[in-house]
């Protein structure tokens, strides 16, 4: 259970948002919607523990989540706006690094996003949509050692074709039936049935 209470965030001198509260139970999905600059990405970074809230608390199972940021990091996957890929490494090598960190099978994760035919190409030559798929493949690394129940996704479908959006839908559905939670910031329709909306 993730709960945010009265979160506020400052960027420079300006309040991005304030008094934000919501809760997320296992299996839940929450869509963050709002205009550009409304603070969707900021909220995701804050929930990931990469930013400090100016006010308010983030609770995990009732305890302060950001008190032990390493433990909090271990229970989440964060898909940022950037794909976090190294252009000089192949698709497989990019993913294998995260597989070594978290456990899980790089080959299976590549297959889940239909990336096996591109596995040995350097990430440099992939198209924008293919890079996005490779970033999403990190979510498909399903490690037994360190499962991550909380997925924080920033515009996950930017640049994706319809088939890939479908594959992401399968991934999200499997995550949610396994008790996972999804928080996604988006301007595009996402394959997340009965997701609640949070307007920023």
């Amino acid at each position: 259970m993730l709960e945010a209470r009265d979160l506020a965030c400052l960027r420079g001198e300006r309040a991005v948002f304030a008094g934000l509260s919501f809760r997320l139970a296992p299996g839940d999905a929450l869509l963050l919607v709002g205009a550009n600059g409304a603070g969707k990405s900021t909220l995701l970074r804050l929930l990931a523990g990469l930013l400090r809230p100016a006010a308010g608390t983030v609770l995990w199972e009732g305890a302060d989540a950001l008190a032990d940021r390493a433990a909090h990091a271990a229970r989440l996957r964060y898909l940022s706006h950037q794909d976090a890929l190294k252009p000089a490494l192949t698709a497989r090598e990019n993913l294998a690094f995260f597989a070594r960190l978290w456990g899980g099978e790089a080959a299976a994760a590549l297959a889940a996003l239909d990336l096996l035919p591109l596995a040995d190409l350097p990430a440099r030559v992939l198209s924008a949509g293919q890079k996005r798929r490779l970033a999403l493949a990190r979510l498909a690394l399903a490690p037994l050692r360190q499962p991550a129940p909380l997925w924080l996704l920033d515009e996950p479908t930017v640049g994706l074709d319809a088939a890939s959006v479908g594959r992401l839908g399968d991934l999200l559905a499997r995550h949610r039936t396994g008790g996972g939670m999804v928080l996604a910031a988006t301007h595009l329709p996402l394959p997340l049935p009965d997701a609640r909306e949070l307007r920023l």
Binding site: Y78, Q82, A84, K86, L101
Partner: peptide, 15 residues
């Protein structure tokens, strides 16, 4: 920092 890798490293479980 530019390509987003640093965020992932800070969330990687490594101090």
């Amino acid at each position: 920092a530019e390509d987003g890798t640093l965020d992932q490293l800070l969330l990687s479980g490594l101090a």
